[in-house]
Write a protein that binds this DNA or RNA. Structure first.
Lengths: 199, 199
DNA sequence: GGCAACATATGATTTTAATCATATTTCATT
DNA sequence: AATGAAATATGATTAAAATCATATGTTGCC
């Protein structure tokens, strides 16, 4: 259920919250009580700037965690609002901190998890920097990012699903990718070979 | 010089490398020797997929770190090539690991650093998801991302510098931002007030 | 089994930022 | 002070993806 290393926590370190659309998991200024994991639904984190502009910090969906940084501050510095009926688990801050201090394995896995996330996000940002939709989709598939639906991939890599479908069609037509059916694609050749770079 | 918590490391845990354009800091398959920090220049990390497509994982510039994940594997899984004459510092893997095990403060700061980075990258990705260049620039400035040049900001938020300058002009003309000169902008009002959302 | 929701798929049109071009200003360096 | 590089700034044109529209296929569910 919970991702590493939080699966190591005792059950009583967790609280399950059921949120209706519009409910808050926490508000800016609240004392930090822990880290959250989204079981289902979606939670949007937003911060208000002094001049009153709402800045979205994260859109956490099922499987995502949020408010990790709360481990290092006394108060939440943003609002967490359910944008759909959601189920979230709150992982107690004190339980995590204690465990982190006393259990080297837990501590190392936590660090590892964060390092992996950093890596993943950086790669995603690098991918976003690729101008051409065609090439972006190719690289996304080549690096194994097509796990769920094409729609999900599209949103992940910053394209509309239509642009994504078209790119996939082009790439398969030209032989850069092969389709194994049911939205399953595999990399076939390098871009050079298929004249991806042609402008 | 070095970012937290690596500033805590003894000097002999670090090695300074001078790389000419094209030199490798490491290659895919090399035994991992540590984490790197870019003092000047730029390092590009790329991985080859089975079919031979080059996937860029990160473009590390001055002040950036790379290969953090090497702490958790025996071999580097990508190439690190200098794309400009560069100066990098290698932080010994063993020194970091030992310190992490023996010094709770170091360990906590490392975790904190990673958590902060995760937060930052997530916010950046969320920002990239904003379609309108105008709104994207506004939110970027409102959340304090305009530190260096406009050109840098543009690249960070995934726009061309031209698009960025135009958005800044529009926003100041309409009063959403105020310019304090020398590329210094401040947020003035919420977007609603300035009819940002008008389509 | 049938309905609703969602994914897949593609065509037509519009919008918008990228690209190309160019000028001025600022800044570091010889 | 002179040179050159980079940042700032805008205009004109183009290219490309977003949007809008629509159809079929798939899947979970009462």
């Amino acid at each position: 259920m919970l991702p590493e290393p939080f699966d190591l926590l005792k059950e009583d370190a967790n609280t399950i919250l059921i949120l209706a659309k519009g409910d808050h998991a926490f508000r800016q200024g609240d004392k930090t009580r822990g880290v959250f994991f989204v079981v289902s639904g979606a939670i949007c984190l937003t911060r208000m700037t002094e001049a009153g502009a709402a800045v979205t910090l994260q859109n956490a969906k099922a499987g995502d965690m949020f408010a990790e940084a709360s481990l290092y501050s006394d108060h939440y510095h943003c609002d967490a609002v359910a944008v759909a009926p959601s189920q979230v688990i709150r992982l107690s801050k004190s339980a995590i901190q204690t465990r982190q201090r006393e259990d080297a394995v837990f501590s190392e896995r936590l660090t590892k998890r964060l390092a992996t996330q950093v890596q993943n996000y950086r790669q995603l940002l690098t991918l976003h920097a690729v101008k051409s939709a065609r090439e972006r989709v190719y690289l996304a598939v080549a690096s194994g990012r097509l796990r769920g639906s094409v729609t999900q991939l599209a949103s992940e890599i910053g394209l509309t699903k239509e642009a994504c479908y078209r790119a996939l069609k082009d790439l398969t037509d030209q032989g850069a990718l092969s389709k194994s059916g049911r939205g399953e694609y595999a990399q076939r050749k390098s871009l050079q070979e298929t004249r991806m770079g042609t402008k």
